[in-house]
């Protein structure tokens, strides 16, 4: 008998208690996002897709020195250098295989010209394997990055011919 009363008590007391929790959450702000209609803002140091940067005059920063490829632990970067019209060194082919990439950011750290950096975007889904092979043209796009405070810290003076006084 005692058991029966206990069970009935559960139904009428404990259950509404539990449901109350659910009810409470109904009126709370949801933790999930309405992806893909809404997107989560990423942390400043998040490492997403790769960008190749240009100089202010529009020329490519990348000189195809091969250090990013050497630093890459996943062997995701392939490049072929060529001679530009002014005798400069630049990349003829620059490919990153995003399927291999582990977004460790070593390439960014290795780059002596600060040409490559990892942005905030993370949506790479595609229906063909080939489309994961990002070429130079895919990465040499205008990027939304503003002055990143962390960049300034690691930025060193890298002028080839030294600095001028004053």
């Amino acid at each position: 008998m005692k058991e029966v009363i206990k069970a009935v008590g559960h139904v009428f007391i404990k259950m509404p208690q539990g449901l109350l929790v659910t009810l409470k959450h109904l009126f709370k702000k949801p933790v999930t996002l309405d992806y893909p209609r809404k997107k989560k803002p990423m942390m400043p140091r998040y490492r997403g897709r790769h960008y190749l940067e240009r100089y202010d005059d529009g020329s490519e920063r990348c000189v195809c020195c091969g250090l990013c490829a050497a630093a890459c632990p996943a062997d995701a970067i392939y490049m072929e250098p060529e001679e530009g019209e002014h005798g400069e060194r630049r990349a003829k082919v620059y490919e990153i295989n995003l399927l291999r990439c582990i977004f460790c950011g070593f390439c960014e750290e290795a780059c002596p010209e600060e040409a490559i950096f990892l942005g905030q975007e993370y949506e790479f889904a595609a229906d063909k394997r080939n489309s994961f092979l990002w070429t130079k043209e895919d990465m040499l796009v205008p990027h939304p990055r503003k002055d990143n405070p962390f960049k300034k810290i690691i930025r060193r003076v890298r002028k080839v011919y030294g600095v001028t006084e004053q």
């Binding site: 002014h86 005798g87 030294g162 600095v163 006084e165």
Partner: peptide
């Protein structure tokens, strides 16, 4: 420790950026 402008030889035949 050298904080002056480095010596630079520019190419005198063609004006390449790398002085080659």
């Amino acid at each position: 420790r050298f904080d002056f402008q480095k010596n630079r030889f520019t190419s005198d035949t063609d004006n390449t950026v790398f002085d080659d």
